[in-house]
Design a protein around this nucleic acid. Structure first.
Lengths: 319, 319
DNA sequence: TCGCCGTATGGGCAAATACTCACGCGCACC
DNA sequence: GGTGCGCGTGAGTATTTGCCCATACGGCGA
């Protein structure tokens, strides 16, 4: 997945230019084709490529009354530091599409601070979407630190990589958690935690000025299970003891109190503790399935900032 | 299939929602129509309205190699503090469309500062475009001040209003220059300048931390003439003494030295003096006609920041 | 060298979108 | 109360776009 040297760069350049002419200039693909000396089909492919590759950002420059209401209600009820509610995209559409641009704006707001900040990051599809939607900005004054590893049980590193992508975009020093998410035994965990490198990253993460996390549901489609960290049996067992959701792998109940599980001893990542106004924890999540998990995390204050979509916000408030 | 029976309060809300579904959600206008319970034509109109009203922002998330080169060359040659070059849109297209989003980003960068800043603003189509392209952000810590009035010779106030619009978007205290751009006599000017309110605004503008200005050409299509501040005869006279361009109404020659004109004594606005690294002056301008004016202003350092488009950048460097 | 395979290209076509026009409704002015 | 005006609406239509497919190109292994 390394960036090609030149050929693709110029392809991306062409794509970006075509998309610029299309969306900003308002030219038709025919006009773009003649302007750039291409066939119309090629112009079409370039525009569509630019969109697919995220070379083009579309953002809403208008706060919908309904979303603002929901934001206010959520702020009020849970005492949130930050809250954004984006319009829903209707059922059967991935809500990450909707919240990613707003999450990116929240991140940009932090990155724009001129003072040096420590920014901690979880993992997950929503955070990955956020990073993809982010405009590249030079922000080398900040430090990015991971709350948990990105290596699955089988050793594969494909679990949604967030911190490296982000670091690439903003050119900030970054501290990935250099360990698997979950280890097999308590002893292995103890050994890992004693490593200087791990201790340093943990310390940084615990001192983060702001934290961005996804929120996982504990229903049958729990990310922990689909990503292979839990078996179906383990999931059901944990559901029985009242699991409602999970942040960075740490599972909590319906009131947002962390559960005392055997699993905990094998988790290597940092547990996000109660968020404060000075050190907020922003949850990035949306979807019917996550409503319960979000309400619980908001109730106890595991997260005190939220970016979500309209139906999810309504669902949280309905409970 | 319609989600909530909620009559979306305003037409803009509907338009924004439709555009969101279209651009972010990727629904077709047919799907939007059934989702929102409208006719397809209405959905189409809403989307197009949202685009026209600037409810939707499209930005490029990719720096084109050619533009980066031009930026580097301009930075180097004129010692610029800030420089952005956006892709051109081809001839016969308004270059303001191209530079407005980039100018808005520059402004957002300033607005994102947490410390309090004084931001001075000129007038003109380019600045107006910048403000239109700006995302609304709460930035009440800053103060916005106008470099010149917005009242034309005939008393009309329609001259591109920038500061009020901007203040509305960012909710910052603002200080418009409460006078006509140009008065009839030197005495009138002296009277105006002695007013406390005017003195205060001038003082603020002169102490601005950052200044955004348009740049006017002095060719036959000079904004000063088309906006009615100069007659054709006056323009020709001023051209004869070497006028190359104008910033906030103050005319300078090909080296960017302000000219000593009779007109000056009747101008009420603040003259932008040499920009510094700490107090930069950002020029927002593009177009074939403005190349000479821009090169002059850059040469003497009337402006030390620039947002322009590709052909204009190339033209400036070619001279 | 040949043939195969993956990839990119342009033509054609159906779907989607933008535009035009005629109509209807409400409103203000007569 | 009539009349004209302006705005919004839906139907119809021209344009634009997205997609499929046949084909050309180029690299690679036999």
């Amino acid at each position: 997945m390394s960036l090609p040297p030149d050929m693709d760069a110029s392809i991306d350049d062409q794509a970006a230019r075509a998309a610029w002419l299309y969306y900003v200039g308002g030219l038709t693909q025919d006009q773009i084709a003649s302007e750039m000396g291409l066939s119309r089909q090629r112009a079409q492919r370039l525009v569509s490529r630019a969109v697919a590759a995220g070379l083009i950002h579309v953002r809403l420059n208008h706060h919908l009354a309904r979303c603002v209401e929901l934001e206010a209600a959520l702020r009020e009820r849970f005492g949130l530091v930050r809250c954004r509610v984006m319009p829903g995209l209707g059922p059967s559409r991935d809500p990450v599409r909707s919240i990613a641009p707003a999450a990116a704006e929240e991140m940009e707001r932090v990155l724009a601070e001129s003072g040096s900040r420590v920014i901690a990051l979880g993992t997950g599809r929503a955070l990955r979407g956020m990073v993809d939607a982010l405009s590249p900005v030079e922000a080398p004054q900040h430090r990015l630190v991971s709350l948990l590893g990105n290596i699955a049980l089988d050793g594969s590193a494909s679990y949604f990589e967030v911190i490296m992508r982000l670091a690439e975009k903003v050119r900030a020093p970054h501290y990935p958690m250099p360990v698997p998410v979950l280890v097999d035994t308590v002893e292995e965990n103890r050994t890992l935690q004693s490593l200087g490198a791990v201790r340093k990253v943990r310390g940084l993460a615990q001192a983060a000025d702001v934290t961005f996390v996804g929120v996982g549901q504990m229903s049958e489609d729990a990310p922990l299970m689909t990503d292979g960290f839990l078996t179906a049996d383990e999931l059901h067992e944990i559901q029985r003891v009242g699991a409602a959701g999970e942040v960075a792998g740490w599972i909590y109940d319906g009131q947002g109190r962390y559960l005392d599980l055997a699993l905990n001893a094998r988790l290597t990542g940092v547990r996000v503790e109660i968020a404060t106004r000075e050190r907020p924890v922003i949850g990035i999540a949306a979807g019917e399935a996550k409503i319960v998990a979000l309400r619980a995390a908001l109730t106890s204050g595991i997260i005190n900032g939220l970016v979500t979509d309209e139906p999810t916000a309504a669902g949280i408030l309905a409970g």
